[in-house]
């Protein structure tokens, strides 16, 4: 105290040291816990693999047909097969289009010409949601977005589908 050069007192030094050491100890405990908790956020998405849906490209017509297939789903330590389905057809440009049947309103399942009153449209029975053949939602019906489209590729004349993505 008497010396002017002494800028850090003994008490301050000990305080800093204790706080620093305590901080390191607290961080050493908390960092692994927090890293563990946020791990799912930092994992690369497991989605994205293509699956053989068991449909030959030659069998795809310009009328939407429903295809069902199973994909392997890995949920942490739990592996299972889950069902997927799609409405597959060839559009005006003769390109294959695979639409997700999940209504963008509240997640019910739509069907092609699901209502006799609305021919040539996808129809959702839950709240009368309707979509054009290309999946565009019809204004004035509940859905506010078009049907999602599956990523697709063709190998050896067989259709493979990936994830359904919004347009």
């Amino acid at each position: 105290m008497s010396e002017k050069k002494q800028q850090v007192s003994r008490r301050q030094f000990l305080n800093y040291t204790l706080t620093g050491v305590g901080g390191f100890m607290a961080a050493g405990m908390l960092v692994p816990m927090l890293r563990m908790a946020v791990d799912p956020v930092l994992q690369p998405s497991t989605a994205g693999d293509y699956a053989n849906v068991g449909l030959s490209v030659d069998d795809i017509t310009d009328t939407p047909q429903r295809v069902d297939w199973k994909v392997d789903q890995v949920d942490g330590w739990y592996e299972s097969k889950v069902s997927r389905s799609a409405w597959v057809f060839k559009d005006d440009k003769n390109e294959i289009l695979a639409l997700s049947p999940v209504c963008t309103h509240l997640g019910c399942v739509v069907s092609w010409e699901g209502s006799d009153n609305y021919p040539n449209e996808f129809f959702c029975p839950c709240h009368n949601g309707r979509y054009e053949k290309d999946g565009t939602n019809i204004p004035g019906t509940p859905p506010l977005a078009p049907l999602h489209v599956y990523d697709q590729k063709v190998e050896n004349g067989i259709l493979y589908l990936g994830d359904a993505k919004p347009r």
């Binding site: 908790a37 946020v38 799912p40 956020v41 994992q43 998405s45 989605a47 789903q73 949920d75 942490g76 330590w77 739990y78």
Partner: peptide, 17 residues
């Protein structure tokens, strides 16, 4: 998106985690 993943433990599955 992060909040959902943090809660659900997965970005697209509501399951075991």
């Amino acid at each position: 998106d992060y909040l959902k993943t943090l809660l659900a433990g997965s970005d697209h599955i509501v399951g075991a985690q």
